[in-house]
Design a protein around this nucleic acid. Sequence first.
DNA 1: CTGAAAGCGCTTACAG
DNA 2: CTGAAAGCGCTTACAG
Lengths: 344, 344
Amino acid sequence: MKNHITLKELAKQLDLSVSTVSKALNDSPEISSLTKKRVKELADIHEYFPNSFAQGLKFKKTRTLGVIVPAILSNFFSMVLDGIEEKASQLGYKVIICISKESIQKEKQAVEMLIRSQVDGILISPSKETQATLKTDHLNLPKKFDIPIVMFDRLIEGIEADKISINDTLEAELATMELINSGCKQVCYFSGISNTSVNENRIEGYTKVVTQNDFEPKILEVNCDNFPVAELKKLLKNKQLDGIITSDELTTILTARNILGCGYTIPHEVSLIGFTNGKMGETFIPSLTSIDQKAKEQGELAVSTMVDRIEGILPPEPVSFILKAQIIQRDSTRKFGIKDDAFV
Amino acid sequence: MKNHITLKELAKQLDLSVSTVSKALNDSPEISSLTKKRVKELADIHEYFPNSFAQGLKFKKTRTLGVIVPAILSNFFSMVLDGIEEKASQLGYKVIICISKESIQKEKQAVEMLIRSQVDGILISPSKETQATLKTDHLNLPKKFDIPIVMFDRLIEGIEADKISINDTLEAELATMELINSGCKQVCYFSGISNTSVNENRIEGYTKVVTQNDFEPKILEVNCDNFPVAELKKLLKNKQLDGIITSDELTTILTARNILGCGYTIPHEVSLIGFTNGKMGETFIPSLTSIDQKAKEQGELAVSTMVDRIEGILPPEPVSFILKAQIIQRDSTRKFGIKDDAFV
DNA sequence: CTGAAAGCGCTTACAG
DNA sequence: CTGAAAGCGCTTACAG
């Protein structure tokens, strides 16, 4: 930063005033084209960049967005970040990324840090802890500084923020129906992401459809560090399980592994649809039918919504966008029309 | 940002001067403790944060690091980023993340943007295009502005930068030996990341060991969007392949899938060791023996090295750190001591 | 068409 | 112990 040439220095070398140099560089119509040319040439030679602090002090805009995600070692959030980065750089915004590690404490620190850095807006998917405790004071802070928030994927009611998500309830309904239509009698929901709005919505959708079909809803909590094999085995043995909706990529893969490990076949004995469509499910054998949550699109839309908000294009009331997810048919489900043995 | 209270405003309300308020907030010994108390209380009430632009203008330090990675949808780089973010936030640094998408053009834009944002340092793993063309002018730019660079994983000679990596040549040698020791006669290298220093080093190590063992080195270029199944099948059929080193996670998984798809068994007919240890390989059936490249550690070390550099702790000459990778034994390789049928 | 001046919000040597 | 002043690098209304 030492050698950063300044307007002052440029002005001195050109024997002009700082104001003139500034205007020339900004292509002000006030300045003669000859002067502009001289100024720009020298600026090029010295690789002049305007000092962004000075500009920030003036304009009170940083063209920087803060992003807070619960994790980065997650295909879903990686894809969201990919979308965010791509759209932001396309629109000329920088992105500061913070990872809350599902901790409300780290999330709060991140919010404060981003405010102090004067980001123009904050994009956030809240931590599990925040969603579980509903302690959201720190999420109301940015508003006090006039910094808008866009929440994505995991949403919290009562926070003034624009919201981007899919309809998790509906998508869980559709996935459950899909399994039932393909002949499943005992569809369970395997949850590896407790304490998230997303999970609760999916359970709601799942439960609704299962109940309508006179089945008993059955939810298994999965700790990915210690998969509940015994429970799975019991369900399989007692014939209480022939279809599964899983909540996230890792849970999906581990579930599939363990089903095969217990000696059952997929999709014949057990069918499986997993939330989040990623490489892991795609490359598993058999490849897994997955729900594409439009991660990248959520990221892109979060950014463009934020930029619209910053630029005052949006109405004052928060807006919500709900993207349509999509079931990607692969080999962990039986195809429609091909009936289960029981129906033959 | 509108409601951001300033020192001036605070001073007015307290009937003090701006200087006194500033000093009080910074705990200067010049200020009486009573005054400090009054000032701090009011600052708390108004949730005062110092304006980081103004501070930046003064101190010429932003406590912000720029990071440029080729991709984020990669387990390896996600883990590096995880390490970077964790260490940086621990040391009180913010992180601006840019993704080059393996394009020299995007990489150059990112460098310029980061310079303009006056980051205190830049951490970079260069794009394939940069490594292939060796056009590195844009990587010499930061030095002109006294912004230090730390390169990680993929390195380029001749750039003044601190460097963090593993010894890819050595690790490829060890992996190749491991396969040979377990009885493989025809070890191939499958490359999905051409045009990277990392890849070339691995090929070098692989070639050395294979040649020493009087085998013919054989390298297959893998395009992950269009896996060369025909070539694989031919190699398998002609018995030219019973062991594989793969260059990256996706190539590894696709290779394993296709071997099984061709009707061969892993590890009995073909053994496999893959670079990059991630969830995909761990959860594959069979689980895949992988080389843990210490991704997170590379990220953490890149940050702490950068901070040492910024704080002037390091000697003026660039330093290099080489981390030791580790082979994680899983089920895609035969165990030592269990000889191949041929040896019984 | 060019320039002097004020101001963005902060810090810090210097006075008192 | 407190405050006036200068300065960080930029922009922009205002004068000339």
